[in-house]
């Protein structure tokens, strides 16, 4: 049986891992390669680098981070942030990434999903989604880090993503992100019911119990967290032991 995956996410700016409580309060928490090695040692099932650098130079630095990590870490690596073309996919995969994650650019240009899936295979195309309750009983898709409402229905979007050949969806709930009250069970179920591809839960995790909850109450394949791991509130090993105690299959 497939194991449920625990995925630490590293936000990288100019080659440094940063974590912001809000956009003004971004602080450095370390070297991405060293952190990836440490998470690998703790038992991370996959590692996500999210490039929050907006500059061209920053991209090169990010690819170096991927290259150096791929020499020391032997679990799948996923890279996202600023990916806007098939060429970006190619450069990132060549640097040693196994998967590439697209978010805003996929909303603006959905063909990027199908083009990348056709050329590189569905297994490496992850579509990230930031979504929020629309007050009318549904959910809307946002872009640019959750700042711009695209008036796009989440149900329609996940169907299109799946039909275009994406390999996975990483669903971040704006409603629960940063609140630390648990993953958005409702929104995750809404998406899991509509697609067959794996769904990664993101946003809202604040304690150990939230990991078992998301796997017991939804069909999510993986759970992603950042600050909990960065600030050493929890280790990945602790999460794995917790899942084992709840009879959830984990590596």
């Amino acid at each position: 049986m497939l194991a449920k995956r625990i995925i630490p996410c590293l936000d990288v700016r100019n080659g440094k891992v940063v974590k912001g409580v809000n956009f003004e309060g971004v602080k450095d928490v370390g070297d991405p390669v060293e952190l990836a090695v440490e998470y690998n040692r703790q038992g991370a099932d996959e590692i996500v680098f999210y490039d929050i650098t907006a500059s061209y130079e920053g991209r090169g630095v990010m690819l170096d981070v991927v290259r150096n990590t791929a020499k020391q870490v032997f679990v799948p690596l996923c890279v996202g942030g600023g990916i806007s073309s098939v060429e970006d996919f190619r450069d990132t995969l060549r640097a040693g990434a196994d998967k590439v994650s697209v978010n805003s650019q996929a909303v603006k240009n959905p063909k990027l999903i199908s083009d990348a899936a056709e050329i590189f295979g569905s297994q490496c195309v992850v579509v990230g989604i930031d979504a929020k309750r629309n007050g009318k009983g549904g959910y809307s898709v946002f872009i640019n880090g959750g700042r711009v409402d695209m008036n796009l229905d989440l149900g329609d979007w996940v169907k299109e993503i799946s039909e275009r050949g994406a390999g996975e969806i990483c669903l971040n709930s704006i409603d629960t992100d940063g609140v630390r009250g648990g993953f958005d069970i409702e929104m995750l179920n809404f998406v899991c019911e509509r697609v067959k591809i794996p769904v990664i839960a993101s946003g809202g995790c604040g304690k150990l119990e939230h990991f078992s909850e998301v796997f017991e109450k939804t069909n999510s394949s993986a759970a992603l967290a950042a600050s909990l791991f960065h600030f050493k509130e929890l280790t990945i090993g602790e999460v794995k032991r917790h899942l084992a105690e709840h009879n959830i299959s984990a590596r």
């Binding site: 049986m1 497939l2 194991a3 995956r5 099932d45 569905s122 297994q123 390999g167 996975e168 067959k196 591809i197 794996p198 394949s221 299959s249 590596r251």
Partner: peptide, 10 residues
């Protein structure tokens, strides 16, 4: 189950 199989299996 989805095809492809992607993930950690025992």
């Amino acid at each position: 189950l989805p095809i492809p199989q992607i993930g950690w299996n025992s």
